[in-house]
Amino acid sequence: MPDVKMVVCCKQVPDPEAPPTAFKIDPTVNKVTLPRDIKPVIGQYDEFALEAALRIKDKVGGKITVLSLGNNIARDVIKKTLAVGGDELILLEDESFEEGDSWSTAYALAMAIKKIGEYDLIFCGRQSSDWDAGQVGLGIAEILSIPALTLARKVEIIDGKAKVEQVISDGYQVTEIGFPSVITVTSELGNLRYAALKGIMAAAKKQPVVWKPADIGLEPSQVGIAGRRVKLAKLFQPAKDAKCEIVEGESPAEAGANLAVKLREAKII
């Protein structure tokens, strides 16, 4: 089937490879604060999703629309999606999109996809690389009333359907899904390709389309923090309290026996 119309949702996140100590939590306002030298990147799972779409485009042809939601989205970061082979970039970019939850994000993305109109496959990462909720992809499917498959490690188009290998706990299963549908992609699919020079040159000449809430038929009160359905009650760094007890004995064998008793008492063994 030629020319599959695909939408790939990509989120800008703080670089997950930054050292954990770089991330600070301010529990008074329930926010994560970042040092100024942590650069945003495209979420890694979203990169896998984009790679899945690119492989389909390579094989059977198609159009890839990349969709991202946020505020102050770094152009040099998000335009990488065009450099690797995305055809169009739409940004849902506005202050009011900030601090949304999985619901308000999925809702805004679904409304944007409705506005895009024609779509066969919607690709998302299995979860974001910052909050790791893993709900947006399925949320989009629910709101658009279309089926979804999760944890794809391979996606092929055969006879007008997507043949998907889904990762399961002890291997993978092969599933077929018709169009339109949502597929969430996992790391086993493989890394996003490098941008070829020709793609970089072409991407530099393209500009993203920017949509505000009104452009997708939403009020600011329906998106971002105002549209949240989950209330963040408390954000904090768990205090780790490690106690070390030396289990002794007259001989190594006795120390071992004493250890076993203690473990039994603690119901560990």
């Binding site: 994560v32 604060t33 100024r36 030298d37």
Partner: peptide, 14 residues
Amino acid sequence: MEYPSSVNLRDPVQ
């Protein structure tokens, strides 16, 4: 989560 502008001079864009 806020995304402050990067000032990392290792960043090729900077």
